[in-house]
């Protein structure tokens, strides 16, 4: 096992040499890129990466340019996880057979995918990878919508969000179903490490990534990716909106160890009302009409109830 990179504070972290490059085609203010940087910079080890079809993929490998300074592969929408699993299998084979070109180096295997490519179309592939126990990390860039294709709902889209295939209208408040609980599902695979992170809480996130890199086996990271385009807020507000998400507990940050033990990893000093978070984004604008206002109350109740559940699990050590 290679040494864990020392990152005491942000000054020390800022000495990292990025392995993800600019002049990619992601929107100005896109959180995907911030997440990728925090993952890649969390280690100095070699990396073998994949991306599922989606914003990150179509914006970072548009011929004749690549924005990746480590080996990277994209196959399709659903199979980014299995692409990296195949590469990991080849690494193991060549290691056994003594054919690695740099036998003293142990690369980390990471697949990036959006919520659509993870919660929906790629779900089976990820489940297969985790059941088989590949030594890899799957990072979800969770922007709660199919952003690359213009904002269609996914099973990560939260109730009341207006997406193009679940639009708010005269009689509809938008998305009707609540977000799928992927963390519980992935923890139920018995994965050694599962965590929900947010790039605005960089220290918390980098610690989770480093812990994920340190364990053997499949690691699932659900990273909140505030989407300026589809959540409808100004590009400069990405971090502000992310702070609202974590501080309202809409995106609670926690980890589940070995599928069994839940730890809350961030407790806001001042919890803000969910309403502030919703009000800051165009996708929830219609919830403030009289006919749909009851949903804001329901939102708050749901978030409170979930936080209560997480705390009870943590206390009970399960």
């Amino acid at each position: 096992m290679s040494e864990i990179k020392k990152i005491k504070n942000l000054k020390e972290f800022s000495t990292s040499a990025d392995r993800f490059e600019g002049a990619n085609l992601l929107c100005p203010g896109c959180a995907h890129s911030i997440i990728v940087r925090e993952v890649l910079n969390a280690t100095n080890d070699d990396l073998i990466l994949s991306a599922a079809t989606g914003c990150l993929e179509v914006c970072t490998a548009v011929y004749p340019y690549t924005s990746w300074d480590a080996s990277w592969i994209h196959i399709g929408f659903e199979n980014g996880s299995t692409a990296v699993a195949g590469a990991e299998a080849m690494y193991n084979a060549l290691k056994k057979k003594g054919r690695l070109k740099q036998p003293d180096r142990e690369p980390k295997f990471v697949s990036f995918a959006g919520d659509g490519a993870s919660y929906d179309i790629g779900f089976q592939w990820i489940s297969g990878c985790f059941e088989r126990g590949h030594n890899m990390m799957h990072v979800v860039l969770d922007n709660e919508v199919y952003a690359n294709t213009g904002g269609q709902r996914s099973s990560s889209t939260p109730i009341g969000s207006s997406a193009t295939t679940s639009p708010a209208g005269r009689v509809s408040y938008g998305e009707k179903k609540n977000k799928k609980d992927m963390l519980s599902i992935m923890a139920a695979h018995g994965a050694p490490y599962v965590a929900q992170v947010a790039p605005n809480k960089w220290k918390n996130m980098v610690k989770a990534i480093q812990q994920g890199f340190a364990v053997e086996g499949p690691v699932f990271i659900n990273a909140m990716s505030a989407c300026t385009t589809e959540w409808k807020f100004a590009p400069e507000d990405t971090i502000d909106i992310s702070d609202m998400a974590t501080d309202s507990l809409v995106f609670p940050l926690y980890e589940i160890i070995d599928g069994k033990k839940l730890n809350i990893t961030y407790r806001p000093k001042n919890v803000i009302p969910v309403e502030e978070y919703l009000a800051a984004q165009g996708r929830f604008k219609h919830l403030f009409k009289d006919q749909f206002k009851y949903l804001i109350k329901e939102w708050q109740e749901r978030i409170d109830s979930n936080w209560d559940y997480l705390q009870r699990r943590e206390e009970a050590g399960v």
């Binding site: 199979n79 590469a87 592939w125």
Partner: peptide, 21 residues
């Protein structure tokens, strides 16, 4: 690697082939 579908079988093969073997 006994995967969970033929799609994953070829996906794994692609990742492995690109890795170099």
């Amino acid at each position: 690697v006994m995967v969970e579908s033929e799609h994953a079988a070829m996906s794994g093969c692609i990742g492995a082939a690109a890795a170099g073997g």
